[in-house]
Design a protein around this nucleic acid. Structure first.
Length: 645
DNA sequence: TTTCGGGTTATAT
DNA sequence: ATATAACCCGAAA
């Protein structure tokens, strides 16, 4: 807040605003994307994903769970295109969408704390689906390759079945029939929902509130209009509170409007105010027609009305406006202020949208805080009317009940506030929404029906996870950052940067560091090896892409928010622990980081390409997150020892 | 500076 | 408590 206040600078303020708004947008579209994925609305999912790419290219505030959400969406994007083997998410390696998803999954496992069992399960399903997909498409050579790669040794009956099919070039088998891609997608979705909660976004709630409000107003309007029409009013109108109910066409406003109109139209012979009004009414009616709910029974839903009224009363404006914008996500100003200011930097840098390379690094600072969670409150489901869009509908339904979603946030401070909505001022209202979120309970509900079960579960996990995730992120960046399709480039290594970073590798490094609070973008992220993006591209398309950059940014932001800055390293502990040890994490030091399959595979490829012992070359060519030459060497030694090479 | 190999330590079982 | 993967450190090239 401080920042805001001080914000003498318009520019600064604007950029800050943009960060906030973009955060809302990301939240909102992430939510929408998940719903589309869930409802099998492929086109809508892709469209929203593209929007997200664009928004992510802009500076924005991050929240604790934003990084994982982004990762999740990237992951789901790949899953969604899983059967399209011609799509490439990673430029370099021609990985199929599902292989790309696997890489992302492994990175997520490192960056966030994912319950090991869930991870293993998802991983296995994904690996099997990779093989099955190749088999179904008749790509037996690739199927064999991935089978050997991911299921090196015996792994039960399925491996044998797959191998049998591959050998005889058969595409059908009971086992394969049972593995429908649809159920696989559902499984992956369930897994993702366990990783983070896509609570009802602020914008959604705000829109809903507005819609509801309109309904109510209409009702009121009809009632009140009569009164207002009276001529007398016009005289004193102004004083009246503009504030109350302004946004809508409330009566009061009308009076003001009339006065204003008279003044402005004084010498003209345009329509009289009354005529004008008439037109408006006509329009209004038309509108009503469109929305049966409201019009038909003015007061129709009691629920709605009452609730909305509350909102309205407090808010003078449409909810949207009033909302949270102001509130910084977190409660206290202190940190926030910082965050925001930082973001500014982002602003500038960030935009690089166009060029993937440019990366702003860091920047965005995150505001940790929170998200607003909730405006919620509204209950009436019906609001739908307004939303003509299908998309919304889907969303709405679930939501309708209550929302409140509060994601888990990890952020510390926050005064505990109870969520009472009753709070008075508008501002508070929003504030509450945003901050409070603590109620997990409510959260769950938002998800669509199918998910419900899961959602509960997910919530819990999330909470723990998200937290972790925040701190952890290391590798992911890579992914995010890289996301997008870029086909080409490998990493260039950037000029050598310090020892640590070096190589082109991953953004992760970068990101993490970036996060370091300073905000100075030190490392630019380059996209090294591009890995995947959310948006696939066939080859042709490449053109734009801001996508990755955005993802990266997000990432960065997100990370930053977390905190860890200080640490230089990326993961603070992260890794995978199964959970228990945070202590370890906390240690400044590093803990041991287990090698992922993808890393191991890169190492194998590297040795194959450059020969054993040329660790520095291998490290420079491939992106290894936070591995030193010696680490590579040691890993190779381990592999040899285990006869895995 | 990079690589190697022995020793140490964190982690999973 | 044990086995082992991951990591550290000093020496050598």
């Amino acid at each position: 807040m401080a920042a805001k206040v001080t914000g003498s600078n318009d520019e600064t303020e604007c950029s800050q605003h943009e960060h906030v708004v973009n955060r809302w947008l990301v939240d909102y579209y992430s939510f929408l994307a998940l719903n589309f994925f869930q409802n099998e609305r492929n086109d809508d999912f892709c469209a929203v994903r593209n929007i997200l790419d664009s928004v992510l290219a802009r500076p924005l505030e991050s929240t604790d769970d934003m990084p994982i959400k982004i990762r999740v969406l990237q992951f789901l994007s790949r899953i969604n295109e899983g059967e399209k083997l011609d799509l490439l998410f990673e430029s370099d390696q021609s990985l199929s969408p599902l292989e790309s998803a696997l890489v992302l999954l492994e990175n997520m496992n490192e960056e966030f704390r994912i319950p090991q069992q869930d991870f293993e399960s998802a991983c296995t399903s994904l690996k099997e689906m990779i093989v099955v997909t190749f088999i179904k498409k008749g790509e037996f050579d690739q199927a064999k390759e991935v089978l050997n790669k991911h299921f090196p040794k015996a792994k039960g009956g399925k491996r044998a079945v797959f191998m049998g099919l591959i050998c005889r070039k058969g595409k059908t088998h009971e086992v394969i029939k049972q593995m429908s891609f649809q159920s696989f997608k559902e499984e992956m979705l369930a897994f993702c929902q366990g990783l983070c909660t896509f609570s009802i976004p602020f914008l959604y709630k705000a829109a809903k509130t507005l819609v509801d409000k309109r309904l109510v107003e209409q009702v009121d309007k009809t009632a009140e209009i009569d009164e207002q029409d009276e001529p007398g009013l016009s005289s004193t109108p102004q004083m009246i509170t503009i504030q109350f109910r302004p946004c809508t066409h409330s009566i009061i406003q009308r009076a003001r409007l009339q006065a204003a109109y008279k003044a402005l139209a004084a010498g003209l012979d345009e329509k009289t105010f009354a005529e004008l009004e008439q037109e408006v009414e006509t329009e209004g009616q038309k509108r009503e027609d469109l929305c049966p709910h409201h019009s038909s029974n003015g007061n129709g839903d009691a629920n709605l009305n009452s609730e909305q009224e509350k909102l309205f009363q407090r808010n003078s404006c449409s909810p949207m406006e009033a909302s949270p914008a102001d509130q910084p996500p977190q409660t206290d100003a202190g940190p926030q202020a910082q965050a925001r200011s930082v973001s500014k930097a982002l602003y500038t840098v960030a935009r690089l949208v166009v060029e993937p390379d440019s990366q702003p690094s860091s920047q965005c600072t995150p505001a940790p805080e929170e998200l607003e969670s909730e405006v919620g409150t509204e209950k009436p489901p019906q609001t739908l009317v307004v939303s003509s869009e299908k998309g919304f509908k889907d969303v709405e339904c679930p939501v309708a009940d209550r929302e409140i979603a509060t994601p888990t946030r990890k952020r510390p401070r926050r005064t505990t506030r109870t969520v009472s909505k009753a709070s008075t001022s508008v501002a508070e209202l929003f504030t509450d929404f945003e901050e409070d979120s603590p109620d997990p309970v409510t959260n769950g509900k938002m998800q669509c029906e199918d998910l419900d079960d899961q959602s509960n579960i997910s919530l819990r996990r999330n909470s723990s996870k998200t937290t972790q995730s925040s701190s952890s992120e290391s590798e992911e960046d890579t992914q995010l950052s890289s996301s997008f399709q870029t086909p080409m480039q490998r990493p260039h290594k950037s000029p050598s940067s310090g020892p640590t970073t070096n190589v082109s590798v991953d953004l992760e490094d970068i990101c993490i560091r970036d996060t370091s609070s300073d905000g100075s973008p030190k490392r630019s992220l380059r996209h090294p090896v591009p890995q995947k993006s959310s948006t696939p591209h066939k080859d042709s398309a490449q053109g734009e892409d801001p996508s990755h950059s955005k993802w990266k940014m997000l990432y960065n932001n997100a990370k930053e928010s977390k905190s860890t800055w200080s640490d230089e390293e990326s993961y603070f502990g992260s890794k995978r622990n199964t959970g228990s040890n945070e202590s370890t994490v906390s240690n400044s030091g590093h803990k041991k980081r287990r090698w992922t399959d993808s890393e191991t595979q890169k190492l194998r490829d590297g040795v194959k390409k450059f020969g054993e012992g040329n660790w520095s070359k291998i490290k420079a060519y491939y992106s290894f997150k936070d591995r030193t030459n010696v680490n590579l060497k040691d890993r190779w030694r381990t592999l040899k020892k285990a006869n895995m090479v």
